[in-house]
């Protein structure tokens, strides 16, 4: 049991890591990863929604009629997204301001609905939570990694949390501003995907 739970958890970290392997949830991936901090914040918010929506959907999976299941999922997901939005407003307001419109957009994030449809409605609550947690962590890690690349090249800093950079490039570094633009996000994501395939192939 514990072994299978661990398996559900770890698959989200490499084998099915969302933006890279599933290539899902690209909207927030491209839009908010201007810094590590934004990536982590977005990832944690998505993880929260994923875990709770997976849990609830798997608990209710025998009650929800299959014809209206998508509507039910949306109601559940939207509820948790709104809760996250309110909580972020209340406790991490600056981050909420940076992420802005992309927090409510978690509702239409393919990852959340995809996990509900592909996993939670076929499995029990514990594996579903493990799955949600794993996928969420994978998503957070990917966003943080992409954010790190973009922030380091595009701005010359690394900001993990709280707005103060923990690392700054040496004086005289001229930032590669292209990486902060939207096309830079696409190219950064593509090159990282390349790298992962290269490592995975060996």
């Amino acid at each position: 049991m514990a072994q299978s739970l661990a398996k559900e958890f770890t698959k989200g970290l490499w084998a099915e890591i969302p933006p890279f392997r599933l290539v899902l949830g690209l909207c927030p991936t491209l839009a908010v990863t201007k810094s590590v901090e934004n990536g982590i914040g977005m990832g944690i918010a998505t993880t929260f929604v994923l875990v709770f929506s997976n849990l609830l959907i798997s608990l209710l999976r025998n009650i929800i009629p299959s014809k209206v299941r998508i509507a039910c999922y949306i109601v559940i997901v939207a509820t948790f997204v709104t809760i996250v939005e309110l909580l972020m407003q209340a406790y991490t307001y600056e981050l909420f301001l940076k992420l802005g419109i992309f927090i409510p957009l978690i509702v239409v994030n393919c990852i959340v609905l995809g996990r509900a449809e592909a996993f939670a409605n076929k499995n029990g609550p514990l594996p579903s939570v493990a799955d949600g947690l794993g996928i969420g962590m994978g998503f957070t890690l990917s966003l943080a990694a992409l954010g790190a690349v973009r922030e380091l090249l595009g701005n010359g800093t690394l900001t993990i949390w709280g707005g103060t950079p923990i690392f700054e490039m040496a004086e005289g570094f001229l930032p590669f501003r292209f990486m902060l633009e939207a096309p830079g996000a696409f190219i950064g994501l593509g090159l990282m995907l390349c790298l992962m395939n290269l490592i995975g192939k060996k």
């Binding site: 209710l60 009629p65 209206v68 039910c72 559940i76 509820t79 309110l86 909580l87 407003q89 307001y93």
Partner: peptide
Amino acid sequence: VVLTVLTALSGGLLATVKAKTEVQI
């Protein structure tokens, strides 16, 4: 019935959270 109950529960939950966080926000 299921959709109605679900929506009602969701509404209730959101109202609670909203009320709890209103002052802080």
